[in-house]
Design a binder for these strands. Structure first.
Lengths: 187, 187
DNA sequence: GTCTATAGCTAGATAGAC
DNA sequence: GTCTATCTAGCTATAGAC
């Protein structure tokens, strides 16, 4: 069965889903093959570097998402409060309202720890820089803007952990509201 | 070599270190054996349930730590600000100033996801309840106290992720200072 | 560029001597 | 209660036909 060409974008999307839900060590080649609808050997044809290359492709994809969606929105010409709301909507969608784990965190542990730290750090820095830009537009001073920007990522990551462990997505929603409040407190 | 009795407390402590640094799926029986100074068969003698039982023993140990150290300190008879400072000092020590990952998060992913969610959730609830108690003593209203308490855990977990990925423990330190400031803002 | 088949290895777990 | 030795299953990765 199968034997029909699967678009690379679709393959990467499905690889991401698997890493997201079971982590790097937890993702077996068999599971990755099933999820993509390809055989293991076909996956190796597309990703000669094996599982590590697959994870790197996923990270490239995520870096593009953050760059093209989040960072783009935050640096558009719209009024700052509008940009903030748009960004939070994107974040809400990315994590399905707190129900999905962050694939960056999933690729931060176990055997994967050292392998992907730098690309993940790059994505984190992009995120923080984008919110830092926004915070300054809101009128915060340099130091406060930096801290508020870091705080958005800290609270999103932390609230995802609690939301999933306590099976209460509301925790994630509340944090997004808190973030919005913090930015608007400057106006 | 070896063949000398290793205290169970020491064994559990070393198991914890391994899970903490490489996660559940990343921790092989060989590595757990090496770390504890026991052979695999000896580990199975002490933990007939295998790796899963070892992780559960670690979680029991952590639950005890949180109960006997953190929760105890937060509900002592000392003045609220003193209790807060003591608690934050304990947290700083537990995570070695942001350099150590949280073993609870390490046991939240991959194959382990479903296995340990409930015990971890229990530890999270104990943490939040203890800080909630403190926040009320500081004079916060019920709703604000609950949110501030959740926020301590959210920010500690989130800042650990950033501190380790960006290799900047200062992020963790700063968050602990922020938490202290938030509590004292009520005075 | 996909497939079937399999190599080579390490995983988690157990048997049984001492 | 520890050890050595070993089992089976699953892993990552590759060979080679089509």
């Amino acid at each position: 069965m199968a034997n029909v060409k699967v678009e690379q974008d679709v393959v990467i999307d499905r690889l991401m889903s698997v890493f997201q839900s079971v982590g790097y060590d937890g993702a077996s080649l068999s599971e990755l093959a099933t999820a993509t609808g390809l055989q293991k050997a076909s996956l190796y044809h597309r990703f000669p570097g094996g599982k590590q290359a697959m994870a790197n492709a996923v990270l490239d994809h995520v870096a593009g998402l953050i760059d093209n969606q989040l960072a783009n929105v935050l640096q558009s010409s719209a009024p700052a409060p509008v940009r903030l709301s748009s960004a939070l909507t994107i974040i809400r969608q990315i994590y399905d309202g707190g129900r999905l784990a962050c694939v960056l965190r999933a690729l931060s542990h176990g055997t994967a720890t050292g392998l992907f730290r730098e690309p993940i750090a790059g994505i984190f820095r992009t995120w923080v820089a984008a919110f830092d830009h926004l915070a300054r537009d809101f009128g915060f001073d340099t130091r406060t803007a930096q801290r508020l920007a870091e705080s958005t990522l800290i609270r999103v990551q932390g609230s995802l952990i609690l939301a999933q462990t306590l099976q209460n997505p509301g925790i994630f929603d509340q944090v997004l509201l808190d973030i919005e409040t913090d930015f608007r407190s400057q106006q």
